[in-house]
Amino acid sequence: MGRFHRHTDGSVHEHDHRDVGDHTGYTQTGTERVSVLENILAENDRIADRNRADFAGAGVTTVNLMSSPGAGKTSLLKRTITSLEGRLRLGILEGDIATSLDADELGGLGAPVSLVNTSAGFGGECHLDATMVRSGLGRLPLDQLDLLIIENVGNLVCPAEFDVGQHARAMVYAITEGEEKPLKYPVMFHACEVVVVNKLDLLAHLDFDLDHFLANLRTVNPTARVIQLSARSGEGMAEWCDWLVEIRDRTAVAGAAGAHPRPHNAALTG
């Protein structure tokens, strides 16, 4: 195991030695080494479990929607609200760093929208955690919803690390982002059950190699469902909505059969 620590002069070193008195025990100075072995995100995961229990109690299926900034989450949600009308009762929880721009854009389309500004959470500028999601749930009529979609903060790293109590993770990838993204952000691409490949209307104008992208995606996530879509033209919306109905049916059946199993905390196996 490589070890890192910071010296008082501010420099960071990596060491490969083992310290004396490795785990539990007393050192010469009378200092006591106490073994803790607690998950750093244990508190987040407890709150995520409470969210999950509330979703189960209200009978609502929850999807955590992630992407890099500007890939098209809000545009996709705008179309989703109208496309699902009459099929599923949809609610949206909008995670935004500091503005209400996305929430404003989604308001008035017929679905309840709850805004959570993440900069209120300390150090949480780059992702939604379970507590932030919980803080926005009170403003949604959960009992009257079938499906809740959480628009996470645009970021391909941090959101994948935080369980918020969702039933499924999905992401939007835009073809303007280049073919190598799955290899650069493998944890995010691995964590998602669905990858929406968006901005397909631009395909003719870019030298984007779709097959190359799909091959890269397959190496980090062989089982991801890929939905090719354009939030601009509406192409592919039917398949996206079908998946939402499907995940809704799947979790509703699991809910009826008993409590939802708690997924592993980590994105890789979660």
Partner: peptide, 20 residues
């Protein structure tokens, strides 16, 4: 692809040193 992850997803507080 029939593999089991042995390690690599740890995110743990291992120990603390209390001085007394």
């Amino acid at each position: 692809s029939d593999v089991r992850l042995v390690s690599g997803e740890e995110l743990l507080i291992a120990s603390i040193d209390r001085t007394g």
